[in-house]
Nucleic acid binder design. Structure first.
Length: 511
RNA sequence: GGCCCGUUCGUCUAGGGGUUAGGACGCAAGAUUUUCAUUCUUGUAACACGGGUUCGAUUCCCGUACGGGCUACCA
C-alpha cells in the first residue's frame, strides 16, 4: 500500500477552534503511523470572511502542540501552492472543464433573485426540479450564453446533479452511508468573484495533492455526496480518497456543539492560544496562556472521541501514533470535559522534568518581576509541581518562594500562637541564622532537637514555622522550603514573623 | 420541514449474543504524608424506550423518543 497523504484544511476566519486542533491531531496521528504525509492547506476562498492573523494563528498552534506539517503553507512541499487563494486559476480551469464535460453549467441568476425566490417559496433549492425555470446555460440558447459570457456578465458555475442515482459512501468511521441524488442541489462550484467554493476547491486540491484519506468533521458528511459526484465528473473516481467523518465536540453542559461563546460562558478555554480580536467580545483566552502544557492538551484531545481500548490514559505523542486507529474513533459526539483536561495537565506537570518546568515558569516569574536563577526555578518546580494544576500556579500559589509573605493565615496563627512562644522563636531564629550546614535534612534534625529540648511538641512549633515561611498552612515540606529560601531569608522571615505574631497575640488576647 | 449521523455510569470511554458490563475524570470514605498536595485502597454510578430474531439480548434487525449536523455565490 502506498503511503497515505492527509491534509488539515482550516479556513482562516478567526482563532482555530479546539475541535479543529483535534481534527489536525487525528490526521497527524494517522499519517505518522502509516509513514505518510501530513499537509496543511489554507482554505481561504471566502474573501468576505478572511481574518488577518488567522493563518499565522493556525501555524503557531500547530507548532505549539507539535503537529508539524510535512508540507503546507509555511512548510514547503512539492504540491504547492498550499493556500487556495494562490490557486484561483487552477479552479477556474477545472470548473470550465466540468462544463465542457457536461457535468456543470453556467448560471446567471443573481444572489438577490434567488433570495427573492427563497422568500417566496419555502424550501426552494436550485436543483433538477427548478433549474429548468432559471437563468442558466441549460435553459438559455447557446448563443445567448456565449454573449453573456463575452459581455462579462457575472455568473457562477453549478454542478449538474442528475437525479435518480444512489450515491454510496464508505465512511471509515460510520460504514456505508447512502444518499439519493434526487435530493441533492446543484451546488455552486465557482463563485461570481472567480473563487471556488469549498466543494470544488477541496476536490481539485485533494486530487492534485494526491490526498488518500479525508479526515474531517461530521458537518461535511452531507456534502460528501456532492464530492463523490465531483470525483466522478472529473473521472477521478479511481483515486478518490477514503472518507472518515469525525464526531463533534459538544458543550460542557446543555445542548449543541462547543462554540467560542462557551469559553466565556463557562470560564474555560476553547481555543489553543490567546486570540486578540477587534473587540473584547471577539477576544479569547487559550489553553496555552491558561497554563496548559501542550502534551497534556494533545493527550486530552486525543481521548475526546477516541480510545484504543485497554486501560492506559496517559499517552505521549509517540504512543498515540503507535496506538491510533480510525476504527476506534467514536461515532457519537463527545462532551468537552474540562475537569479531565485539568487532570491531564496536573499529571503532565507532575511528570515533567524540573528543568523543563523551569523554562516554562521563567516568563511567568519575569512578568512578576522576580529575578531568579534557572537552578532556583527548577527547585521551585520540584517543590510545587505536585501542588499545582496550571503553570501560573507556580508563581501565584507559590508566590512566597519568590517574595516575602504577604499575609499570615490569621486563623492558624490564633490557634497556634501564644505569648510564651516569643522567646522560643527568638531562640529558634538564632539557631536558624547560625546553623551549619544549612540544608533541609540537617536543619530538620536540629530544629526537632531544639523543640524537645524546650520541652515542646513538634505540633507546637512546626505549624508556626510553616506560617513564618509561607504565611499559609498549605505548601511544600517546611525544611525543603527553608533550604530553597536559604539561611538569610529563612532567618529574616522568622524575625518578621516573631514581630508580627507578638503584636497579633496581644490583640488576640485583648480582643 | 427535508436529508444524513448518533445514543453504555454525571462526563470521556472499553466491551460484545450468555460478563460480578471494565477503566479514567468527578464525587465520597479511609490509609500515608504532624500542613496542603501527591500517592494508595475502597465506595458511588450506565447499556434511552418499544417491538422483533434467538434457548438467551446491552450486543443483531425494525420502529419510537431524544440529541446532533447539513439544507448559502460560508467553510
Amino acid at each position: 500500500m502506498t503511503k497515505p497523504r492527509v491534509r488539515f484544511a482550516p479556513s482562516p476566519t478567526g482563532a482555530l477552534h479546539i475541535g479543529g486542533v483535534r481534527t489536525a491531531l487525528y490526521n497527524y496521528l494517522f499519517a505518522k503511523q502509516q509513514g505518510g504525509a501530513f499537509i496543511l492547506r489554507i482554505e481561504d476562498t471566502d474573501q468576505n470572511r478572511y481574518v488577518p492573523g488567522a493563518e499565522k494563528y493556525i501555524i503557531e498552534t500547530l507548532r505549539w502542540v507539535g503537529l508539524i506539517p510535512d508540507e503546507g503553507v509555511d512548510f514547503d512541499g512539492a504540491y504547492g501552492p498550499y493556500r487556495q487563494s494562490d490557486r484561483k486559476e487552477i479552479y477556474q480551469k477545472y470548473a470550465r472543464e466540468l462544463v465542457t464535460r457536461g457535468r456543470a453549467y453556467y448560471a446567471f441568476d443573481t444572489p438577490e433573485a434567488l433570495e427573492v425566490r427563497r422568500a417566496a417559496e419555502e424550501n426552494f433549492t436550485y436543483n433538477h426540479l427548478t433549474r429548468g425555470g432559471l437563468t442558466n446555460s441549460l435553459t438559455l440558447p447557446a448563443a445567448e450564453v456565449q454573449h453573456r459570457l463575452d459581455a462579462g456578465e457575472p455568473c457562477v458555475i453549478r454542478l449538474l446533479v442528475e437525479p435518480g442515482q444512489a450515491i454510496r459512501i464508505n465512511d471509515l468511521i460510520r460504514g456505508e452511508v447512502v444518499f439519493q441524488s434526487s435530493e441533492l442541489d446543484d451546488k455552486v462550484l465557482l463563485k461570481a468573484d472567480g473563487m471556488p467554493t469549498y466543494h470544488l476547491a477541496n476536490i481539485v486540491d485533494d486530487h492534485l495533492m494526491a490526498i488518500t484519506h479525508v479526515i474531517r468533521g461530521e458537518e461535511w458528511l452531507p456534502s460528501t455526496a456532492h464530492h463523490v459526484l465531483l470525483y466522478e465528473g472529473f473521472g477521478w473516481q479511481d483515486t478518490m480518497p477514503q472518507f472518515a467523518h469525525l464526531p463533534l465536540i459538544l458543550k460542557p453542559v446543555g445542548n449543541g456543539k462547543l462554540s467560542k461563546r462557551d469559553g466565556a460562558k463557562f470560564g474555560i478555554p476553547v481555543f489553543p492560544l490567546e486570540w486578540k480580536g477587534a473587540t473584547p467580545e471577539d477576544s479569547f483566552s487559550g489553553f496555552r496562556d491558561t497554563g496548559f502544557l501542550p502534551e497534556a492538551v494533545i493527550n486530552f484531545l486525543a481521548l475526546l472521541g477516541w480510545h484504543p481500548g485497554g486501560e492506559q490514559e496517559i499517552f505521549s505523542l509517540n504512543e498515540l501514533i503507535a496506538a491510533f486507529s480510525i476504527e476506534h474513533i467514536s461515532k457519537g459526539g463527545a462532551r468537552f470535559d474540562y475537569e479531565k483536561a485539568r487532570w491531564f495537565n496536573q499529571k503532565y506537570i507532575q511528570a515533567a522534568d524540573n528543568g523543563v518546568l523551569a523554562t516554562h515558569i521563567r516568563p511567568l516569574a519575569e512578568a512578576k518581576g522576580y529575578r531568579v536563577s534557572d537552578a532556583y526555578l527548577a527547585q521551585v518546580a520540584g517543590l510545587m509541581k505536585e501542588r499545582v494544576t496550571f503553570l501560573p500556579d507556580f508563581v501565584e500559589v507559590g508566590y512566597y518562594l519568590f517574595e516575602s509573605v504577604r499575609v499570615y493565615d490569621a486563623e492558624a496563627l490564633h490557634k497556634k500562637w501564644n505569648t510564651g512562644l516569643s522567646p522560643v522563636f527568638e531562640d529558634l531564629t538564632d539557631l536558624v541564622a547560625t546553623f551549619e550546614p544549612f540544608n533541609g535534612v540537617a536543619l530538620e534534625e536540629a530544629v526537632k532537637n531544639f523543640i524537645s529540648a524546650k520541652g515542646l511538641k513538634p505540633g507546637d512549633v512546626l505549624p508556626l514555622l510553616r506560617l513564618a515561611l509561607a504565611g499559609t498552612m498549605k505548601g511544600p515540606a517546611i525544611f525543603d522550603m527553608a533550604e530553597a529560601l536559604g539561611q538569610d531569608e529563612t532567618a529574616e522571615r522568622l524575625r518578621r514573623f516573631v514581630a508580627y505574631a507578638g503584636k497579633n497575640a496581644e490583640s488576640a488576647v485583648n480582643g
